[in-house]
Nucleic acid binder design. Structure first.
Length: 547
RNA sequence: GCGCCCAUAGCUCAAUCGGAUAGAGCGUCUGACUUCGGAUCAGAAGGUUGGGGGUUCGAGUCCCUCUGGGCGCACCA
């Protein structure tokens, strides 16, 4: 609801009277230069070819047929190659602001998702160490995507999938075992491919404390269970510190114990897409566009990773998620094709693009001008916890969200740590704190502001007009960000809008102004405060009343 | 060798479905505080959108190609 329905309908009517097809849906956009007007339409240019007329001439014809009152506009001008620029009638802004305030924390939300269930899987770190910065980016991204989907009417399930068995976990157990024995005075090396981080030594010490009967760490199974449990707890603490929660933790091992892996293999075989070669069982993924076939069951009888992956996604489908979104690092992009192909080969009615993937590029951490290598095994990587402790949750979230996921991210710890104006999150939060300050100092309850019976036509500064337009764009922005699964659009919008707020705040005083100015500006302040607060909440960032 | 992603101001990044004069922040330079917070604001400088070709009324955006970077290409996960 951005108040353009009337204008779009009127444009469509005018165009149809000139011979345009009955199903056209004219698009409106904000002109780059605000002096052109409030809205612009390229309708005449898109219709010029099919109707065989010159764009500007067609634009003129459309404008002549417009009923300004019905469209809610005060002017329509033709510009450039055939744009039509509109100015909105003043009361449209006023009504928009009142509706905004009445909606309050619901402003910007919609119901396009129609309460359909959607599963969003993210982080999904294996319990072999603390969460690193890459997981941090994924946590911020996934959490914001969930918030956007929820805000647009989807019923969201946040899911964390992890591998609690297999070779990696065995290495983990053996690494702890080696450390236990070292602490007992023995000279032993860590296993090949083992984990070298300090946290392994901590785990070993705690294992000794809790398992006095197994001083030499002979019980590998107990070591494994202990290490997985402790590292899961540690990851949960990291996530909690980051303010991220999950609804479902899904264990890979459960796919084996409940027979789903075998079931999946059987189904693939009976669907006729497999063959045996060199003692292994292969899936003909090339039938579905892969560049070569993939092994499902190795000659030693165990399955390759992608079989449980496929089985896992079958459970998502069978749990009723017609839509599933996976947020993953781009280093896993090769799984995209394989999981989808595996699901197709099952031939159980799962659509081709299932699941959807949001891939994010790698994070490079810079400290003191040098790259800090991220490696679980080296144990010298930067963890999510490190970042939160150093720069705070809000700044970490914002840093991870301010960029498109598909570009690489340089996280400069030194810059992020400096609590200065280099951190854009403070700029946004400051705008919110300033608005809150108006109400605090004026001893006015912001909840009492409704805009009803207030003449908003006195808000005639250009800064006020621009700010109002930005605030009324918010619902469209949210809808677009949710649809494209791009939270960075919200971050960019909030930064822009905060700029408009600072500008207005600097130019226009609120308190101690004549009554009609005071009342109108309080409405604008309240509306701005609500938009900032709603937007920040979607990104998981606090909106402080004072800083 | 093959596949995916990226390349925009000195640096880090935006740019809504292909729209008008490509925008912010930082950094640099010049300015603004008796008011509700100077963590702010105003102004200036800074660009052949990596190179080349194509598509069209119009290309940072789409197609081809080259260059440069990241990631992935095991009967590892």
């Amino acid at each position: 609801m951005d108040g353009t329905e009337l204008l779009r309908a009127e444009l469509a009517r005018a165009a149809q009277s000139l011979g345009a097809p009955s199903d056209i849906e004219p698009q409106l956009e904000r002109p780059r230069d605000p002096s052109f007007g409030d809205w612009a339409s390229n309708l005449a240019m898109t219709l010029a070819k099919p109707l065989g007329r010159k764009p500007r001439e067609l634009a003129q014809a459309i404008v002549e047929r417009l009923d300004y009152a019905r469209a809610g506009i005060s002017s329509a001008e033709i510009a450039g190659p055939g744009f039509i620029n509109f100015r909105v009638a003043g009361d449209v802004f006023a009504e928009g602001l009142r509706a905004l305030i009445a909606a309050a924390d619901q402003y910007g939300r919609s119901n396009v998702g129609q309460a359909c269930p959607v599963n969003v899987e993210f982080v999904s770190a294996n319990p072999t160490g603390p969460l690193h910065v890459g997981h941090g980016r994924q946590a911020a991204l996934g959490d914001a995507i969930c918030a956007l989907l929820a805000a647009t009417g989807w019923r969201v399930t946040r899911e964390f999938y992890y591998n609690d068995g297999g070779v990696q976990i065995l290495n983990l157990a053996l690494s702890v075992q080696a450390r236990v024995r070292q602490l007992g005075g023995q000279t032993v090396d860590l296993p090949e491919g083992g984990y070298h981080g300090e946290y392994i030594r901590d785990l070993a010490q705690r294992y000794i404390d809790e398992h006095s009967s197994d001083a030499n760490a002979e019980d590998v199974d107990a070591l494994r269970r202990f290490a997985v449990r402790e590292l899961r707890k540690e990851q949960d603490r990291d996530l909690q510190a980051f303010g991220v929660h999950f609804d479902v933790y899904f264990l890979e091992s459960s796919l084996y114990t409940d027979g789903r892996v075998d079931q999946t293999v059987d189904r693939l075989i009976s669907a006729g897409h497999t063959y045996e070669k060199d003692g292994a069982l292969w899936l003909k993924t090339t039938d579905f566009g892969d560049d070569k076939d993939r092994v499902m069951r190795k000659s030693d009888g165990t399955y390759t990773y992608f079989v449980p992956d496929v089985a896992y996604h079958v459970t998502k489908w069978e749990r009723g998620f017609k839509r599933a979104i996976n947020v993953q690092g781009a280093d896993h992009h090769s799984t995209v094709t394989r999981v989808r192909v595996g699901l197709q080969a099952l031939d159980i009615g799962i659509p081709e693009g299932y699941p959807e993937y949001v891939l994010h590029q790698m994070v490079t951490v810079m400290r003191s001008g040098e790259e800090v290598k991220i490696s679980k095994r080296a144990g010298s990587y930067v963890t999510v916890r490190d970042l939160i402790d150093e720069v705070g949750r809000d700044a970490v979230r914002y840093f991870f969200l301010m960029r498109k996921g598909d570009s690489q991210l340089v996280f400069d710890v030194d810059v992020a740590r400096s609590q200065s104006d280099e951190n854009p999150v403070y700029y946004i939060q400051m705008a919110h704190a300033r608005l809150s300050g108006i109400f605090r100092v004026g001893e006015i309850d912001p909840e009492s502001i409704t805009g009803v019976d207030v003449d908003l036509s006195v808000l005639e500064l250009s800064e006020e007009q621009e700010l109002m337009k930005a605030l009324l764009d918010y619902p469209t922005l949210i809808a677009g960000a949710a649809q494209s699964l791009e939270p960075h659009r919200v971050a960019t919008y909030l930064h822009d809008t905060a700029g408009k707020i600072h500008l207005w705040y600097h130019k226009a005083h609120v308190l101690n102004e004549p009554d009609e100015i005071l009342r109108a500006r309080l409405v604008l302040a309240r509306a701005s405060q609500l938009v900032l607060r709603n937007g920040l909440e979607l990104l998981g960032i606090t909106a402080p009343e004072r800083m």
